[in-house]
Amino acid sequence: MSFDLHRPSSLAEAVALAGLFGPGARFIAGGTDVVIQINRGKIAPAHLIDISLLPGLAGIAATAEGYAIGPLTTYRTIERHAAFQGPLSALVEAAAVVGGHQVRNIATVGGNIVNASPAADFVPPLLTLDAVLDIAGPQGDRTVALRDFITGPGKTSLGAGELVTAIRFARLAANSATAFFKEGRRKAMEISVVCVAASLTLDASGTRCVSARLAVGAAGPTALRPERAEASLAGQAAGLTSFRDAGRLAAEASSPISDVRASADHRRHLVAVLVERALTRCAERIAGARP
């Protein structure tokens, strides 16, 4: 196993190198997935293009519509970001369960997205925020919705030489909150058996659901948005009955496998429980934030 390591200092140079080396090249940032995959013999790139020096791709910016997260932003940075501690706290909750501190200090959000693991913890919260990705590449720039970007386990619509340059999402409406729940076999350092994110908006009285967005990870080939479950909540009284119905519909929408971590039946059960729990937590948070 060996490769050449290239360390471009600009985005243009990185894209040009990727174009030059073609399919034998891989981008690397924190390396917490790429190096392990090389060591396991899953990938054998002849060229690694280190993008960790590229300027302007790390950090979180407030924009006119909401937020733009640079792909080189680490999980520890997300966890500690002041603006995500309120209604967007699902981002903090998901970031906080990716590996241990040592991984979160160096692993990047962009890397986790393009790695496209069905169990990636940070993807469901971004799906509930309708996140979009800005992508640069040899054919120019494009923008794609995250839900269209991940196409299967380890598969994305990323073309040869393309790089994610930003992850963007809009601010939440008033009377909204988010929540993230993960079930693993132990509390830390665990790949999700199932994880669930919810984003809930209530009406001005705080009693009726205006809209809900749900995302389920590790219960299908990609993280999924259970649309019937989401639609079932619109106009309903916020509470146990409507939240439990949404959980049941989300479980029906999921297509989990049985593997070493859990059976498909157990995963489906967890989807129902965690969706109900996440919606309940959102409602509690909205109530708690009311003046």
Binding site: G31, T32, V35, N39, D50, H101, V103, N105
Partner: peptide, 9 residues
């Protein structure tokens, strides 16, 4: 910052 040196090139 703490990192795992086993997977850091």
């Amino acid at each position: 910052k703490a990192v795992n040196s086993c997977i850091l090139l």
